[in-house]
Structure formats: C-alpha cells, structure tokens
Design a protein around this nucleic acid. Structure first.
Lengths: 180, 180
DNA sequence: ACCTGAACACCGTTCAAGT
DNA sequence: ACCTGAACACCGTTCAAGT
C-alpha cells in the first residue's frame, strides 16, 4: 500500500479532511474537532494534516465555512419576510456549537476573527435584500443590522425554539412598520 | 515545609484558586485557564485542585462568577437609563473571552449551562428595574428581554465600541417611546 | 482532610526521514 | 509533493500513597 497518494488531486484530499472535520465540529464543537481524530478517521498520521492546513484554527475556518454554506444553501424561495428570517435563524440555531467555537477562537486566531466578520457581513447583506420591500430605504441599514445583532443574541443565549421565535416576532413588529 | 495546610481555612484556599483562575480566564480565555498553570502559580500539584473543584468546568463557573460580580458591582447610581445600560454593556464587553468560554462550554457542562441561564436572568431582572420608569408596564417584560438579547448579540459580534454604542442607541429609540 | 507524585490517555505542533 | 513516525511540550483526570 502506498504511503502517499500523488495520484489523487490535492483538492480532493483537502475535501476529505474538511468533510470529516466539519462533521466532528458540528456534532461535538471545538472539543471534538481534533486533528488526531480527523487523521485517524482518514487513515493518516497526525502530522499529515499540516501539509494542507497551517493550524487547527485554519481547519476550523474551513470546516465552519462548509457547514454554514450547506446550512444556508437552500432558503425557502417564497414566503413572508418574517418566515425567511425565522428559517435562517433556525438553521443557525442547529449550529450552536460551531458558532460558539468560532466566537471563542476568534480571540486567538486572526483567521477565525476575519471569517467571523465576513460571515456577519454576509448575513447583513442577505437580510437587507429580504427586508428591502418592507422597510423605508432610510431605515433599511439600521434595521437590517439590528435584526442580525438580535438574532445573534438569540442564538448566543441557548433559548428554547419557541421562546426564540416569539422574541424575534416581537422585535420585527417593533422595527418593521405595517405598510398600510 | 508542610505538604498540606490544615491550618488554613478551606474557604481561603478556595479563594486563592478562584482568584488565580479568574485572572487567567479574564486575560487569556478558556485556553489560558489551565489547572496546571493555576496549580503551579499556587505552588500546588495539579491534582490538588480536584479536592476543591470536581472539574475544570466547575472552576470555570466559579471564576466567571467572581469576574462578573466584580465587573457589575459598582454601577453608576445616577444618570439616564440609557447611560446605565451602556455602562453595563461596556463592562461586559471587556470580558468577551469569559463570555465566549462560558458559551462554548455550556454545550458540554450542565454546571456551565445553568450558570449562564442564571446570569441572563439576572441581567433581565436588573434591566427591568432600570427601564420601569420609562416603559409602560404592559411592555416592560418584552422590552427588557429584547434589550438583553440585543446586548448579548452586540457583545457576541466583536464590534468596535463606537459601533456598539450606536446600535444600542438605535434600538433603545425604537423600543422606549419618548414620554411626552 | 488535604496534598503529592506518578500514571493514563489524550492534545497541537514540528521535523528528520522516507517515497 | 506528500506522508510517516517519533519527539516535544503540553493538557485534564485519577489514584495510591503519604501527612
């Protein structure tokens, strides 16, 4: 059996690592994301990962990116704006361990910090588009930013889904005036 | 030199451990809070800590409790309600590493999770008292809960202090009607 | 009751050596 | 270019043995 695999494309090998890492991260958080575990599952030595990722935090970023992309890839195309926001919130709520790992590591890794910032910007941009038909242009930026902050808060508090949804509805009633 | 110190009160020894642990946690987050480090700084063996704390997460809770109590112990007695909320937010903003450590570990430890819940409740209670004179009774609970969620979101996003304050002001304008 | 010292089973990271 | 295997310097946790 060959020790290395020069025949397999580099992207494919990276993809294997990220896939295994993403599952560990999603299911067990930062604690469960271990280079030893990932390597073992792929039949590699621990050190092999470092040929593709400079550190555990870099692998964390790659895994989180994949998880979020997958979770937000198929939004409901129709429906009220409130339902779409709720959908995104619930998708993210299932990934609490991922979010909190990013939050914690962003204090130690520049790569994690900048990924987190980029992700927040992405959420704000998406939300602006969803809210545009329902919010006066002058208020759009403020309202979108506020809703993202609020959702982030809801997610960071580990609330029950029903409570989460009620709080979100309350805030949307306050910020998005009924068009009449 | 004596190996153990039966003369020193148990509370005092616990206090030493928590004090050292709190400083490590505040300055370097969960990563820097190591039982080895704490023990070494106190001239103890690693295992000695386990006589007082059942696990690292239990020590985390004790350290976080002390840090938050200290940070919120002397609020400005006077001033606008908005200023008091802003003060509390800024106090907590300086403790981002503590908050994110609690958030991450709450998925793995029941003790951490219930401490986090209790802390959120404490914030909501305090906020209700601050807002009571300015918010109709029927809206008080919803508004207080929303503001806590919002502040939690602001803190979890690692924003610049100025941005943070602006967002908070915007939300308070939306939720707390001018009494006229 | 309290503490040590060693042991256990892990980590992330580095690197000489191999293919 | 890619991967191994060993080494390094750590972890948290347990526990027999001491005081």
């Amino acid at each position: 059996m060959p020790r290395n695999r020069p025949d397999v494309a580099r992207e494919e090998k990276i993809d294997d690592i990220v896939r295994v890492a993403a599952r560990a991260l999603r299911e067990g958080g930062y604690e469960a994301l271990s280079l030893s575990g990932v390597a073992q599952e792929l039949g590699l030595a621990r050190g092999a990962i470092y040929w593709y990722f400079a550190s555990k935090d870099d692998l964390l970023v790659a895994a989180a990116k994949r998880i979020f992309d997958e979770a937000l890839s198929s939004p409901p195309s129709l429906g009220q704006y409130a339902k779409r926001i709720e959908w995104a919130m619930e998708q993210l709520a299932m990934l609490g361990q991922v979010t909190s790992a990013l939050r914690d590591r962003s204090h130690h890794s520049e790569a994690v910090a900048s990924f987190e910032t980029a992700f927040h910007r992405r959420l704000c941009d998406g939300l602006r588009n969803v809210l545009r038909p329902n919010v006066p242009a002058a208020r759009l930026d403020d309202v979108a930013d506020s809703v993202v902050v609020f959702v982030q808060g809801l997610l960071s508090m580990g609330l029950a889904p029903a409570v989460r949804r009620d709080r979100l509805k309350f805030l949307l009633r306050q910020l998005v005036p009924r068009v009449s």
